[in-house]
């Protein structure tokens, strides 16, 4: 947050209000995505897998806006999930911060209409995320059935997330454009 403040000082007042609007929009999107992810999609019995909307939003923002916003958004998303689940606190925050930060490095390679790179990033990010969960929650309990987990947990999640990325990435993209206008 200190970093954000120093950025504010450098910009003009007009830009500050824009930035505030942006933050508001993203904060709202965070809560809405969280609610949809936990309370709507998993309860529809015909869906076997559900996309991790918060993960997609985190890496999209990291990718479009850079490390710092990605990291902060990741922290917020991770904290929400940590507060929701009763496991060790900080488990999700850590991976979301890491993902937000790492994706920020690719913001140099960001072109406006270029969708292939985000898709590739989506697959990689999902993979990192699931490996993280597997290692810390399953591998240490001596569950080694990796092919099964890959096929039945990771693959559906990745495919679903890819489809949703198409929509959500567009959302972040247009939101950025609208705010910048």
């Amino acid at each position: 947050m200190i970093g954000m403040k120093s950025i504010f000082k450098k910009k003009t007042i007009k830009k500050t209000t824009k930035r505030r609007l942006g933050i508001l929009v993203y904060a709202l999107s965070l809560v809405v995505a969280f609610l949809i992810q936990t309370s709507v999609i998993p309860l529809l019995p015909f869906l076997s897998a559900s996309p991790n909307l918060l993960l997609i939003l985190t890496f999209s923002i990291g990718f479009i806006h850079g490390n710092l916003p990605g990291m902060i958004y990741g922290l917020a998303a991770g904290l929400l999930l940590d507060l929701f689940y009763s496991g060790p606190f900080g488990f999700y925050s850590l991976i979301f911060v890491v993902i937000g930060y790492l994706n920020g490095f690719f913001s140099n390679a960001y072109y406006e209409e270029y969708i292939t790179l985000p898709m590739v990033m989506c697959v990689i990010n999902e993979f990192i995320y699931h490996v993280y969960i597997y290692i810390f929650r399953f591998f240490f309990r001596e569950k080694y059935d990796i092919p099964y987990y890959l096929q039945h947990v990771v693959l559906p999640a990745v495919v679903f997330s890819l489809m949703v990325t198409l929509i959500l990435y567009r959302f972040v993209f247009t939101a950025t454009e609208k705010i910048d206008e």
Partner: peptide, 23 residues
């Protein structure tokens, strides 16, 4: 700016790990 976010990243990660351990 990059360096700054690197430090923040390290701080946040360590914080998260500490939270995990504490909890």
């Amino acid at each position: 700016d990059n360096k700054k976010s690197k430090y923040i990243f390290i701080v946040l990660s360590v914080l998260c790990m500490m939270m995990i351990i504490i909890s």
